[in-house]
């Protein structure tokens, strides 16, 4: 390599790392602040100038799990959001495949109808849902929330997966089907592996939105089916804000989703190696 090329690649690497680190800092600093705040006592949290070294305390987390019953809320959230995400992913991907590969009458109208679910302010659904919940006797049970979250995840899944499915040339599927695979086998063995990055991204997002949803969760649950966002909101008192508790709640609620994302990162990468299949 010539000197100028070494220099260029060195400067390029420096710039790349510089930008990457700057970006990571921008996105990570408030997270860092939240995490450290969650371990601070009330005195340390409100101190100014801000304290960077302090003696950590688990009081905020203790309060979450003892007073606020966060453990049960965690289980509820996991069940409700997990199920809803699976339903949305399954139904939505099937619908996306239908829209992408088949000539469906009124296709675009259908697609926009699905998207319009997302456009209606969630406020309008609260009271009708409450009425349904009481009449069907499913108030404070997971079912209505699961259904509602599955519904609100559908627009994402359908629209995003449709684009990702379109990206996979039909010739590949045709080739497989010529070789004797059924439509389903083709999907399962050929299309699906290529769809993994899109599936991973969509699943994370659908899960995340349902995980953090507050309005419906707060109105449709009481003791039994209460989810995490409702617990976290209790850091906001009528005339004050419990900063430490809010941070601890934020950290606790984010951990499962962050773990999920870390797991999904592998699939985001996988697409590249299989991309070589495409011509």
């Amino acid at each position: 390599m010539s000197n100028s090329r070494i220099l260029k690649s060195g400067a390029g690497a420096l710039a790349a790392y510089g930008l990457a680190i700057a970006a990571a800092l921008f996105f990570a600093f408030p997270i860092f602040w939240m995490v450290t705040s969650s371990f601070k006592s009330e005195v340390d949290i409100s101190a100014y100038p801000p304290v960077w070294s302090f003696s950590p305390t688990l009081a905020n987390y203790a309060q979450l799990f003892t007073e606020l019953n966060a453990w049960q809320a965690l289980l509820n959230s996991a069940l409700i959001v997990g199920l809803a995400t699976c339903i949305a992913m399954a139904a939505g991907t099937m619908a996306a495949y239908a829209l992408a590969r088949f000539d469906v009458k009124g296709k675009e109208f259908l697609a926009f109808e699905i998207l319009s679910i997302r456009m209606l302010p969630p406020i309008v659904s609260v009271i009708p849902m409450f009425i349904i919940a009481r009449q069907l006797g499913i108030f404070d049970t997971p079912w209505l929330l699961i259904a509602a979250y599955a519904l609100s995840g559908l627009p994402f899944v359908v629209w995003v997966m449709r684009v990702f499915i379109q990206d996979i040339p039909q010739s590949i599927e045709e080739a497989a089907m010529i070789d004797g695979c059924s439509r389903f086998e083709t999907f399962w063995r050929v299309t699906l592996p290529l769809l993994l990055p899109g599936l991973a991204a969509t699943m994370v997002i659908v899960f995340m939105f349902a995980w953090n949803e507050f309005l419906l969760a707060s109105m449709l649950t009481s003791q039994e089916a209460k989810t995490l966002p409702v617990i976290a909101a209790n850091a906001i008192k009528p005339k004050a804000i419990a900063w430490g508790l809010a941070s601890a709640a934020g950290v606790m609620m984010s951990l499962p989703v962050v773990v999920l994302v870390l797991l999904m990162q592998r699939y985001l990468v996988r697409g590249l190696t299989l991309g070589a299949v495409k011509g």
């Binding site: 019953n69 009271i127 109105m219 209790n234 009528p238």
Partner: peptide, 20 residues
């Protein structure tokens, strides 16, 4: 269970007005 201020008001109104 505890409720933050505004959710408390909303719940109060919705629950009571629906005769729950």
């Amino acid at each position: 269970e505890g409720n933050p201020y505004e959710a408390h008001y909303e719940k109060l109104l919705i629950e009571l007005s629906q005769g729950s």
